[in-house]
Every structure is written in C-alpha cells, then in structure tokens.
Amino acid sequence: TRVETATETAWISLVTALHLVLGLSAVLGLLLLRWQFPAHYRRLRHALW
C-alpha cells in the first residue's frame, strides 16, 4: 500500500505540473497572438462576444 500511495502522489504531481505547463503555454500563446495580431484579435473577440 505504501508503494501504491507513492505512485499515486507521483501521478498527481505529474498531472498538476502538466496542467500548469499547459495553462501557462495557453496564456503565453494568447498574449503572443494579441501582441502580434491586434486587429485580428479584436475582430476575433468581437465575433466571440
């Protein structure tokens, strides 16, 4: 049971790290898009909202 718990903890930390990385890359990508294509971003936002 001790090994299982350790594996579970490792998986949880791995998944958390993955989610953090994905979230950060998504935010960075959005910022980059907004910085590179302001007109396109505004049009996209206008279409979405």
Rank of each mutant, 00 (worst) to 15 (best):
T1N: 07
T1V: 13
T1F: 11
R2W: 14
V3D: 03
V3M: 01
V3A: 03
E4Q: 14
E4K: 12
E4W: 14
T5H: 03
T5Y: 06
A6L: 03
A6H: 02
A6F: 10
A6P: 01
A6G: 14
A6M: 11
T7G: 05
T7Y: 11
E8V: 06
E8Q: 01
T9Q: 11
T9M: 12
A10W: 07
A10H: 03
A10F: 01
A10T: 04
W11L: 04
W11T: 04
W11P: 01
W11I: 10
W11V: 10
I12N: 00
I12P: 02
I12F: 06
I12D: 08
S13R: 09
S13N: 04
L14I: 06
L14M: 11
V15H: 00
T16N: 06
T16L: 09
T16W: 05
T16V: 13
A17C: 10
A17V: 08
A17M: 12
A17E: 08
A17N: 05
A17K: 07
L18I: 08
H19W: 15
H19D: 09
L20C: 12
V21M: 09
V21K: 02
V21N: 02
L22Q: 06
L22M: 07
L22A: 13
G23M: 10
G23E: 03
G23F: 11
L24K: 01
L24C: 08
S25C: 15
S25Y: 08
S25T: 12
S25Q: 09
A26N: 00
A26T: 12
A26V: 11
A26E: 07
V27Q: 00
V27E: 01
V27I: 13
V27R: 02
L28M: 15
L28D: 02
L28F: 05
L28I: 04
G29Y: 00
G29I: 14
G29M: 12
L30A: 13
L30M: 11
L30N: 01
L31H: 06
L31D: 04
L32Q: 01
L32M: 10
L32E: 01
L32K: 01
L32G: 03
L32N: 05
L33C: 15
L33W: 04
L33P: 05
L33K: 12
L33A: 07
R34M: 05
R34W: 10
R34P: 05
R34A: 05
W35S: 11
W35V: 14
W35T: 13
Q36P: 00
Q36E: 09
Q36T: 10
F37R: 04
F37C: 15
F37L: 11
P38Q: 13
P38S: 13
P38I: 06
A39I: 12
A39H: 11
A39G: 13
H40C: 15
H40E: 08
H40W: 10
H40F: 13
Y41W: 15
Y41M: 14
Y41D: 05
Y41H: 07
R42Y: 14
R43P: 02
R43S: 10
L44V: 13
L44R: 04
L44A: 13
L44D: 00
L44G: 03
R45N: 10
R45G: 01
R45F: 04
R45Y: 11
R45L: 09
H46W: 09
H46K: 13
H46L: 06
A47E: 02
A47M: 10
A47Y: 13
L48V: 10
W49L: 05
